[in-house]
């Protein structure tokens, strides 16, 4: 199968205006991914399934991930003049990365027996802009999995044919898989005195 850089170039060539970013995966597994933008995601997905020659006809896994707001610390070497002497010191820059929710798609090709190609879609934030385009019109296998991410993470999939809760009951109000979910009191350890 082609490398991710080649796939990225071909996507950008075929779908005008698509912005694709390669997210490298540290660690021994490899499996780097492509981050797509919302406006062109559906066209990119259709291209990957039909026009690209990769024949990615099978969406195997759709995962939701919660990335709450964190403070990222970066160490940088900076030249500073102290008492007339120029020195290089290390300073720690703190940067707040806003929170977002992420949907990761693992795609394979049943026809050509190759894969995986990993796609990512990120929401704007973890509140009112927690929405991404649904890829169910391209791969029906994503239908229930996207519903599950809506149920447990609260991500709204625009264009999904039937977006409602799937595992928890209708009327449940929380998004339990989020990192800041507080489980009900009765699920804590109870001591019967």
């Amino acid at each position: 199968m082609e490398s991710l850089e080649q796939i990225k170039h071909r996507i950008e060539g075929a779908v005008a205006g698509a912005r694709v970013e390669i997210i490298t995966n540290p660690g021994p597994a490899g499996q780097h991914s492509l981050l797509l933008d919302h406006a062109h995601a559906l066209r990119v997905a259709t291209f990957l399934r039909e026009g690209s020659g990769l024949r990615l006809d099978y969406a195997s896994n759709v995962t939701g991930v919660d990335w709450p707001e964190t403070v990222l610390k970066e160490k940088r070497k900076v030249k500073q003049t102290i008492e007339g002497v120029e020195r290089e010191i290390e300073e720690t820059i703190e940067r707040t990365r806003p929170g977002f929710l992420e949907v990761v798609y693992h795609l394979y090709s049943m026809e050509l027996k190759q894969g995986p190609v990993v796609l990512r879609l990120r929401t704007g934030d973890r509140a009112a802009s927690a929405r991404v385009p649904s890829l169910t019109p391209v791969w029906r296998g994503a239908e229930f999995q996207e519903r599950e991410i809506y149920d447990l993470y609260g991500v709204i999939f625009e264009g999904h044919p039937d977006l409602r809760r799937i595992l928890m009951w209708e009327g449940f109000e929380d998004y339990p898989m989020r990192k800041d979910y507080a489980a009900p009191v009765e699920n804590a350890a109870v001591s019967i005195a």
């Binding site: 540290p26 660690g27 021994p28 499996q31 195997s60 896994n61 995962t63 693992h106």
Partner: peptide, 24 residues
């Protein structure tokens, strides 16, 4: 403690493709 990263692994279980996706 595995190094930070992610991996998707799958096998042919009797029911179909059973996969696990882990982010460390």
């Amino acid at each position: 403690r595995p190094k930070p990263g992610e991996a998707y692994g799958r096998i042919e279980s009797p029911k179909g493709e059973l996969g696990f996706f882990l982010i460390s």
